[in-house]
Design a protein around this nucleic acid. Structure first.
Lengths: 352, 352
DNA sequence: CTGAAAGCGCTTACAG
DNA sequence: CTGAAAGCGCTTACAG
C-alpha cells in the first residue's frame, strides 16, 4: 500500500499509535473521528503521536468494518468529447466536496466494455455509480447490468423504460429556445443537423425544434432533418447534405457543438460564411464554442452544474432517498454569439 | 456497499458460498483465484453456487488481507484542457488493461488542492500515483507531498531536482523538428508564442526552437519570444504582441495547440490568414487541431501512447523496478497540415 | 485435495 | 473517560 512506515518497515496502524501513546486502539479510533468522549489531554497526546509517526488512516479497512464506501463509479461514454470531459469535471468536484472519490472509466461507447467496467466497480466496492450510458444501451441491457442494491444515476442519455433517476438538461426546451431565436431573426426554413433518431437526446432536441417551428405557424418539413454521427465529421456531412437539398434551409440547429463546429468549418471550406450565408446554432456550449470561427451561438447545458447535480442525486440515493425524487431536468440557456448571424446588438448577450 | 444479497439482506460472501456448496471458505477462495489445487468436481460445484447467488468478490477485503491495492491515483492538473483529457484517457486504458483502476482527481492547477488530493488518495489506499503536477509545484513541495513508500510517476511537467521518474514527450526534439520545417519553408524570422519561462515544458520547447535556428546558422533574436498564458486567449495576446514587434516574425512556433488556435483565430479576426500571412505551428496534436481553421500543423506528442506509458512505468515501480529506469522520453512526430503554409505537396503527409 | 486458524486495520457495542 | 473483545470479507500458511 505504501504508507509511511515505522522502523519495522510496515505502515503504521492505530495499534502502533496506541502503543506509543499508551492508550488502547479504541481510544485512537475515537480520537480519529473527533469524538468528544475522549479527554482533551489524551486526545492531544494521541494526536501528537499521529503527527510524529506520519500515520495515514486506512479508509479501506474502516469501510470494510462499517460496510460503507467512499468510492463512486464514474462511467463516461466518451471522454474524448470535450462535453463529457466538462461533465466529468463537474461530477468530480461535486463528489470531492461531499467526501467521495471517483473511480473513472471511459467506455468509449462500447457496451461490452461498459458491462465489464460496471462489474469491476462493484468488485471494487463503489457505493454507487453515475453513468452516461454508451450508445446502444437500452432498458433491458441496463436492467441486466444493474444490481438492485447499487445506487445508480443515469446522465445525459435517458434510457426509456428504466426507473433509474435521470439527470440531464432540458433538451427540448433548449432546442426550442434556439430555434425560436432563429425564427425571430427571420428564418423560415430551418434544418436540423446531426445525431440519429435512435438517440433519445436527438429525439428530444428534434422535438424542441419541431415545437418552435409549429408554434410559429411555419410549415413543417421533416426532410430538413439531416442525420449523421454526432461528431465534427458528421457535422460536415450533414451540412453538405443540407446544401444539396432542393430547397436548402437558411438556418440549421445542430445536434451539438461539435456537429456545429464541423458544419461551420465545412461551410468555410466552400467559401460560405456561417452567420451570413447560413445561420448555425449548436448545443452544449463547450469551452471551444466561444473560440470557433465564427463563435458559436449555442444552448448552454450548464454542464458543470449538471455534473454537480449528478453527484448530489447519487449521494441522495446512497442516503436512502426515493429514486423517484432524485431525477433532475436542468435549465438551459441560449448563448448568442455570431454563428446565428444575430444583429450585433444582441450578440454577446445571454438570453434567459 | 450494495452487492447482490442473500435472502437475509446482506451481501453474499464467501462463507455463504462455502456453506451452500458444502465446503470451507478456504476452498471457495482457492476456486476464486483459479487454483489448480481444487478438484474439478468441487470447483464446478462452487462455481455453480457463485453463479446462482450472484456473488461479487470483495476486492477491498482481499486487498486489506494481502496489503496490496488495485487502485491508482490519477492526478491531473487541468482536465479542462483537451490535451490532458486525452492523456487521462490513455492512462485509464493502460491501467484497466493491467487490472488496475484509476481514482481521478483534477487539481485545476491549484497546489493546495493537489496536496489535499494526494493525502486523500493515500488514505484511500492507492498503490501508486500518476501525476501531472499543478503549475508552481517545485521539487521542494513535491518532496513534502511525496511518501517514500508511495510509487509515483510524474508526467508532462518535469520537476527539476526530483528523483521521481518522469514520463513525457521529447519537447526539445519536437520543437526543433517543427522549426526546422519552417526554416525549410524559407522562413528566417521565427517567433515563439506562449507559456512562461518558469514552466520547464516551455524551456524545453524553446530550446528546441533555438537549436533549430542556431543550427541553420540564422541570427538568433530572443525578443521574438512572446510569453503568455498557455490558453487560447494567451495565444491571441501573444500573436498580437508579435505583430506589434518592429521586425515581426513571418512564422511562429506555439507553446501548444490551444495557444496556436488562439493565435490563428486572432489572425483571422484581423483579416490575416495563418499559413499565408504568417505561418503557425502548434504542439500536442489534440483532436481539435485537425479541425482548426486552418488545420494546424503541429507536433504530435503521441498522447495516448504517453498515457499508456505512464501506466506501464507506474506498475513497474509498484513491482519494484528501479525508479531510474522507469522514466521515459517519448517520440514526437511532426504533422504537417495547413497553418504552416507548406506547399500542398507535403501537406497531409506526416514526417517522421 | 480440503479445512481450521490466524490475521489484515479498522469500528463498535459493552463493561468498567 | 477508556479498554477488551468481536467482527467486517478476505488469504495464507499449516495440518491432515
Amino acid at each position: 500500500m505504501g504508507e509511511t512506515r515505522t522502523g519495522s518497515g510496515r505502515p503504521t496502524t492505530i495499534v502502533d499509535i496506541a502503543r506509543a501513546a499508551g492508550v488502547s486502539k479504541s481510544t485512537v479510533s475515537l480520537v480519529l473521528k473527533g469524538s468528544s468522549l475522549v479527554k482533551p489531554e489524551t486526545k492531544a497526546r494521541v494526536e501528537d503521536v499521529i503527527e510524529r509517526f506520519g500515520y495515514v488512516y486506512n479508509r479501506g479497512a474502516a469501510n470494510l468494518r462499517t460496510a460503507t464506501s467512499s468510492f463512486v463509479g464514474m462511467v463516461i461514454s466518451d471522454l474524448t468529447n470535450p462535453f463529457f470531459c466538462e461533465l466529468a469535471v463537474g461530477i468530480e468536484e461535486g463528489l470531492y466536496q461531499r467526501g467521495f472519490v471517483p473511480i473513472l472509466a471511459n467506455t468509449n461507447e462500447d457496451t461490452e466494455r461498459q458491462a465489464q467496467v460496471l462489474r469491476s466497480m462493484r468488485e471494487h466496492g463503489v457505493g454507487g455509480i453515475i453513468m452516461s450510458p454508451a450508445r446502444g444501451t437500452d432498458a433491458w441491457m441496463l436492467a441486466s447490468l444493474y444490481s438492485r442494491t447499487m445506487p445508480m444515476v443515469i446522465t445525459m442519455r435517458q434510457i426509456i423504460g428504466s426507473p433509474l433517476p435521470y439527470v440531464g438538461p432540458d433538451n427540448q426546451a433548449g432546442a426550442r429556445k434556439a430555434v425560436e431565436h432563429l425564427i425571430g431573426l427571420g428564418h423560415r426554413r430551418i434544418g436540423f443537423l446531426g445525431g440519429y433518431a435512435t438517440m433519445t437526446t436527438q429525439q428530444e432536441r428534434i422535438s424542441g425544434w419541431r415545437d418552435a417551428i409549429l408554434g410559429a405557424g411555419l410549415p413543417f418539413d421533416d426532410t430538413l432533418v439531416f442525420e449523421s454521427m454526432p461528431t465534427r465529421d458528421g457535422g460536415r456531412q450533414a451540412v453538405e447534405a443540407s446544401l444539396a437539398h432542393p430547397a436548402r434551409p437558411t438556418a440549421v440547429m445542430c445536434y451539438n457543438d461539435i456537429v456545429a463546429m464541423g458544419a461551420t468549418r465545412a461551410l468555410a471550406m466552400r467559401g460560405l460564411r456561417a452567420g451570413k450565408d447560413m445561420a448555425v446554432v449548436g448545443f452544449d456550449d463547450i469551452d471551444e464554442a466561444e473560440h470557433n470561427a465564427p463563435p458559436l451561438t449555442t444552448v448552454s447545458a450548464e454542464t458543470r452544474l449538471m455534473g454537480a447535480r449528478c453527484a448530489e442525486s447519487l449521494l441522495g440515493l446512497i442516503q436512502g432517498s426515493d429514486p423517484q425524487e432524485m431525477g433532475f431536468t436542468g435549465p438551459t440557456r441560449l448563448v448568442v454569439r455570431e454563428s446565428c448571424g444575430a444583429p450585433v446588438s444582441i450578440r454577446q448577450k445571454e438570453l434567459a
